[in-house]
Simulated scan of single mutants.
Amino acid sequence: MASGTESDEASDTPEIYKDPDDGRQRFLLELEFIQCLANPTYIHYLAQNRYFEDEAFIGYLKYLQYWQRPDYTKFIMYPHCLFFLEQLQNANFRNAMAHPANKELAHRQQFYFWKNYRHNRLKHILPRPLPEPEAAPPVSAPPQQPVPALPPVPAATISATATAPALPPMQYANAPGSALAKNDARNSAVDRRKRKKEG
């Protein structure tokens, strides 16, 4: 009879599941999934296929927040996934990522972050140069001569130059008396052809 009571007690206690590899496979699968969240196109795919309408999946996203602890963040290669994981806790963000325009916006902002990250980081990390010491004024500087004032220009000259239209750059070459017109290779070729026909 004692053996019967022992078997009854053993059946009452639930068996605890033990991973055959001590959770290594689960760890790798969750690490791979969470790093996929760094890609806005993948989040858009999840939203398009209505994963975000499943309460179990939303619960899984809440469970995955343990990856934000320092013990686990050291394994993550794409830190943007933690930002997107935090955003996915918000229902408005989950709904917005179903639209292609929002996916493109997130992808563009991520690109600009990567493009300027090094420059922005170095701007705050590198030490700023010390200000240069101001030079002492010279002990005995010679007095400067005053610049003589220019004579006033007659009003007739100003009004004549103001009303004359300025020629566009290409018209200077064709202007009569212009040095450019004499040295222009095209004009000399035309002159040679005219002389050839006349001769």
Rank of each mutant, 00 (worst) to 15 (best):
N92M: 03
Y60R: 10
N120Q: 04
K182E: 04
F52Q: 00
G23M: 01
F93Y: 12
R69G: 14
F57D: 02
L130K: 10
A101W: 06
P70T: 05
L122T: 04
P20E: 11
L37E: 04
H119F: 03
P165R: 04
Q145M: 03
M170Q: 14
A141W: 01
Q25Y: 00
A156W: 14
T157I: 15
L61I: 13
D21S: 00
I158N: 04
Y78P: 03
S188D: 03
Y72F: 14
D54Y: 03
G4N: 03
D191Q: 14
G23A: 03
R192K: 15
Q110C: 10
G23T: 06
S7E: 05
F75G: 08
G177F: 14
Q65P: 07
Q110K: 08
K74L: 14
T13N: 09
T41K: 11
E6A: 04
P14S: 12
L105N: 08
A166C: 13
M1G: 05
I58G: 01
V139C: 00
A149F: 13
M77I: 11
D19N: 01
L122I: 05
F83S: 08
S140I: 13
L130F: 05
L29E: 00
D71R: 13
R195Q: 15
L88Y: 09
P79K: 09
P152N: 10
P176E: 12
Q110N: 08
P14G: 12
H80T: 11
Q109T: 06
T161N: 06
A155V: 15
P133A: 12
D191T: 15
A56W: 06
P154Y: 13
P168D: 13
P168E: 13
F57A: 01
L82A: 05
L46P: 00
Q25K: 00
A189H: 10
N49Q: 02
P176F: 06
L82Y: 14
T163P: 01
P79Q: 09
R94S: 09
I158V: 15
Y72N: 11
Y60G: 03
L82G: 10
A141N: 02
G59W: 06
N174K: 11
D22I: 09
L37W: 10
H119Y: 05
D21G: 00
F27M: 00
L126Q: 08
G23C: 01
L37V: 10
M77A: 11
E132A: 09
Q25S: 00
E198S: 15
P138S: 01
V147K: 08
I43Y: 13
M77V: 13
H107Y: 06
S3E: 14
A149I: 11
